[in-house]
């Protein structure tokens, strides 16, 4: 390809007016050994473009998403909160239960105290009856 032609193409290239075919021509020219020195910068550009196209994606593509760690964390969070709720509920129930037992014990103790004191009173009253009986025996009312 003549230099004049290349220069024309380069001008068109800068204005983005070249066709793909023309760009291929340019690429081929700038890949060759004898590039005109005043067009040297284009050989860097085309050299880079060419090399960039060689880069490939080498990993295998998976179509089904793996279970990501983030997802697991989410589940763990949900599970943890559920466990926390349940344990709070159970713990609160247990607490209530104990509180009730304590109260029951207190009430029973109080009642016991009351009953023993009542019994004491009863005995005192009983001894009063005996007194009355004796008095009645002695005086034999009617």
């Amino acid at each position: 390809m003549e230099l004049a032609n290349i220069e024309k193409l380069v001008e068109k290239y800068l204005n983005a007016e070249t066709t793909l075919q023309e760009e291929k021509t340019l690429s081929a020219y700038f890949a060759s050994e004898n590039v005109a020195s005043h067009l040297q910068e284009y050989s860097y550009m085309f050299g880079y473009f060419k090399k960039s196209k060689d880069e490939t994606f080498n990993k295998t593509i998976q179509l089904e998403p793996r279970k990501t760690k983030r997802k697991n964390w989410k589940w763990l969070q949900v599970a943890a909160s559920v466990v926390l709720l349940i344990s709070m509920y159970a713990g609160y129930g247990e607490y209530e239960h104990r509180q009730q037992e304590k109260q029951l014990a207190q009430v029973t103790e109080a009642l016991k105290l009351l009953s023993t004191n009542l019994n004491k009173g009863n005995q005192a009253v009983a001894s009063l009856y005996t007194y009355e009986d004796t008095v009645n025996k002695i005086f034999k009312t009617k």
Binding site: L14, N15, A16, E17, E41, Y42, M45
Partner: peptide
Amino acid sequence: AIRVALSRARKTIREALIKQH
């Protein structure tokens, strides 16, 4: 619009290369 952007990009790269050189 693509042509305009492309032209601008190509010119920018070229000018920068010349400058560095």
